[in-house]
Amino acid sequence: MGNQKLFKGSLQTIILKLLAQNDKMYGYEITQKVKELTKGELKITEGALYPALHKLEADGLLDVEVAKVGNRLRKYYKLTEHGTKETANKLEEMQEFLKTMQHLVNPKFSLE
């Protein structure tokens, strides 16, 4: 998939946005949700997801909960208060970025 590189820089924002909508999620669930929402267009690789989650956790944006599910332990991530605020900031940044890219890729010329 050629456009994976474009998504790479947005991984943290994607994770934060999903957690803002879903209260708490575990790693595998995040990969599947992204696949489902983008109809397979974007696949978060396992090697990128966990480092991103651990970084967000270390930065205090995510909190962790562990539950025993069947015969194994499952680690759930959820937004902290700081994480919720940061999600709003990151989404705003993303909107700005998209707008700028739109101007660059598809400039509208006007006679002024």
Partner: peptide, 22 residues
């Protein structure tokens, strides 16, 4: 295989970094 050519190494390395910060 979905973890890529470096397997779990990336995950471990980044976890170590995050834990150092903690």
């Amino acid at each position: 295989k979905k973890f890529g050519v470096f397997g779990f190494m990336d995950v471990v390395e980044k976890k170590q970094k995050a834990m150092n910060k903690h």
